[in-house]
Design a protein around this nucleic acid. Sequence first.
DNA 1: CCAGGTCAAGGGAGT
DNA 2: ACTCCCTTGACCTGG
Length: 309
Amino acid sequence: MSVRNIGYCCINLTVGHLKTSRDIKKATWLTPVGIELAVDCGIKNAIDILEILKWNELYGIKSYRMSSNLLPWMSEYEICDLPRFDELHQAYKNIGNYVKLHNHRVTFHPGHFNVIASLREDVVQKSIIDLSRHGEIMDLMGLDRSPFYAINIHINSLQPSKPEACERFVQTFSGLPLCVTSRLTLENDDSPNQYGVQDLYDGICKFIKVPIVLDFLHYEYGPDCNSKLPEMMSLAFSTWGNITPLTHMSSTRQLEEPKARKIAHADYIYNLIPEHQQDFDCELECKAKDLALFKYQNELQNLAHLILK
DNA sequence: CCAGGTCAAGGGAGT
DNA sequence: ACTCCCTTGACCTGG
């Protein structure tokens, strides 16, 4: 087996009381106590992240994507200026210590509003701030500045053209803080018009050190779909140096709801994660979260049992 | 207390 | 032109 660690994203459906995306709405944020409410959410979210990691450890799960809603409205302030910052920092340090002690891998997947290649300067600036906060939180956790702890995004712009958007991405990248550039990764898209592994490699990775996160479902529907998957895996994995590459796995929702759009994610996985001679980690993007991970592992065991017989 | 409406944000694709 | 999809369901109000 070349898949080393399989993880899930953000929500644990088994332990229902743990929440890591406590948030406040704009109207609440704008009240005089908005900032206290925001940091209170942040501290509670961080405490629950640690509880989820402990639960993961109990079940042998070493890979976990953290929510990007960890700290409400974080683009609106400097984290170190928050009231109760020491308390928040301690909660983050506890996470980082646990991650390192038990060899877990945690990542971020910041939202689609981050478009650092955007033609709109205001969008670029907001994206830089949001990505910086993600990097700063990982710094506060004491996590290495390495794409092992990936901050993974899409290019998310085709304007004014693919090559020019890549150029803008490369330019903006050089202005990002080290806490981001040292961890930033790029994921292949799910549409033939957008960015495949080859596009990312040619347009970005030849110029700056940004590893490619290969999403197996997106590969099916993206520009690379006529290429051989093993070759695309080799190409994506070659961008990781000596760091274990990260991948994403999911199944199309059409297998559960024929009328759903093919790029929508299913509750569970219906295909095996592809194999490769090189080890890699894999985050499952399933609506059923940890339940999907267990179901996949159980089916794998059944399969192995049948093969052995 | 619960159900339902609503929520900061970009961009592209499907209808 | 409008809705849905991606990332993260959870907040908040009115009954």
